[in-house]
Simulated scan of single mutants.
Amino acid sequence: MEVTRGFFGRNLKNSLLEISKKFFGVQSAKYIRLAEVGKLETPKSQGKYATGQLILHRVFGYRGVILFPWLARVYDRDISNKKEGIEEGNFNGVGKEVKGRTHTFYQVLIDQRDCPYIRAQTEAVTFLGNHESSRSLYAIPGLDYVAHEDILPYTTNEKAALQHELFDKFLSYHPDNDPPFIAQETLRAWQKKNHPWLELSDVHKETTENIRVTVIPFFMGCRESQTTSVYWWRYCIRLENLGDMSVQLRERHWRIFSLSGTLETVRGRGVVGQEPVLSKTLPAFQYSSHVSLQAPSGHMWGTFRMEREDGYAFDCRIPPFSLESKADEPPTPNAES
């Protein structure tokens, strides 16, 4: 079976083979047909990438295009000054919550040809409809939030550089522009209308035994009845193995605190029905899940039970993060418009 994979390098043959081994494994790489899709550019060490910039994801390897940037507050517990005891901003008594540092992330449209081959859920915006009689969950497919350092920019002469149902609706081709894809009014209107659900505000990071966990929470909306209000959040989690030994995620253990005063404990096997292996060739895995509270805010934290290839098991900390609601709901978005 041949699979066309849109990766490239300056030394096309050798670079593509090495990248294929990384993302598909040594044996699978023998059956992959490689196709040149463009020319690599030097990543930006300063400044931001513009709307319409074509990118490769440094970790997951997919092709994408930048829709717009976000400024996020990044709370990295690896660089905090560890102190004993419970301190302000510390939800589980382990370490000290660091001050959020502003960092640039990008909302990226993913090439649909690459979606089946990446170890990440390729849906990154979910929210509730604004009609009280509706309990629909809206999902916009093929979106991701990408940190500035994970961007590998490239250029191409192809007018149809990306395959996604929203690509031609959001961006138009102008060969004299740099980058040559510029935002249409549809994209600007869509961004403005759906701002509360698209907005990325906080990012939380922590590393345990060379396993890096990154959490990004999003507010999804509120469901109200005559007797109660239920608030919903989505949280995106990325696990990355920074070491040399393979590690498998076996169990999850969550603690969920609500402003109403309740504390819930959740245990279970794996995540989203999987027990992913993080290896040298496939070091990362990303997934999303949802949580609801009968209060407008709360906190979550927990651990993943990990098992290393040599049999050593340990608990990998999930950094504490806040669940905050937003006041206003916009009209129900339409991903097709």
Score class of each variant (00 low, 15 high):
residue 82 K to G: 08
residue 72 A to V: 08
residue 59 V to N: 11
residue 42 T to R: 09
residue 48 K to S: 11
residue 82 K to A: 13
residue 46 Q to D: 15
residue 44 K to S: 06
residue 96 K to Q: 11
residue 79 I to H: 10
residue 16 L to M: 14
residue 32 I to C: 01
residue 38 G to E: 06
residue 60 F to I: 07
residue 66 I to V: 07
residue 79 I to F: 09
residue 77 R to H: 06
residue 65 V to I: 13
residue 31 Y to W: 07
residue 94 V to S: 04
residue 90 N to C: 12
residue 42 T to A: 11
residue 95 G to N: 01
residue 82 K to I: 09
residue 72 A to G: 03
residue 93 G to P: 04
residue 26 V to E: 15
residue 13 K to G: 05
residue 55 I to W: 01
residue 67 L to W: 00
residue 55 I to F: 04
residue 42 T to L: 12
residue 13 K to V: 14
residue 99 K to L: 10
residue 70 W to C: 06
residue 53 Q to R: 06
residue 81 N to Y: 10
residue 29 A to N: 02
residue 59 V to K: 10
residue 59 V to E: 12
residue 69 P to Y: 04
residue 97 E to C: 12
residue 45 S to E: 15
residue 29 A to Q: 03
residue 60 F to C: 06
residue 49 Y to D: 06
residue 91 F to Y: 13
residue 61 G to E: 01
residue 33 R to P: 05
residue 51 T to L: 01
residue 78 D to T: 05
residue 31 Y to N: 15
residue 76 D to N: 10
residue 46 Q to L: 12
residue 47 G to R: 02
residue 20 S to D: 10
residue 44 K to D: 05
residue 91 F to E: 15
residue 57 H to T: 04
residue 57 H to D: 14
residue 89 G to S: 08
residue 38 G to R: 02
residue 21 K to W: 02
residue 46 Q to P: 05
